[in-house]
């Protein structure tokens, strides 16, 4: 069983440069690796502040947290210096998962893109 996750990457300027990943689809075991490679690609090209826009994610399983953990470990040793991983705009079903798993203990979760960008 495989699902799809479309990922659009944009460069934004907050207080610091921020790479925004607009995710659409399911974030699960079958799409986790795609997300990690996209993030690795960006980090390899010098990005270290990563913001994941989850408004288009209709399902997120535990693989989502695994992916964000792996990416945050990678950012900590980014060639351009340690950066931050933040999340923005979780849809309702995703918010419930974030709440149960306790994501806010690990990552900042913002409600809108503007405040998320400014927070970097």
């Amino acid at each position: 069983m495989s699902s799809t996750l479309r990922i659009a990457v944009m460069q934004e300027q907050g207080t610091a440069p921020v790479t925004v990943f607009q995710l659409n689809g399911s974030l699960d075991a079958s799409t986790k690796d795609t997300l990690e490679s996209k993030a690795e690609e960006a980090i390899g090209s010098g990005a270290n502040n990563l913001l994941f826009d989850l408004s288009g994610v209709d399902y997120m399983g535990s693989a989502g947290l695994r992916a964000f953990h792996a990416i945050s470990k990678r950012i900590a040793v980014a060639e351009t210096g340690p950066g931050k991983l933040k999340l923005v705009n979780p849809s309702d079903p995703v918010s419930r998962v974030l709440k149960t798993l306790g994501f806010d203990a690990f990552f900042e979760v913002h409600k809108d893109l503007d405040s998320a960008l400014k927070s970097f």
């Binding site: 953990h69 798993l101 306790g102």
Partner: peptide
């Protein structure tokens, strides 16, 4: 309800 996050990551 949860009183803290999942364990094993951080």
């Amino acid at each position: 309800e949860p009183t803290g996050p999942v364990i094993g990551l951080f």
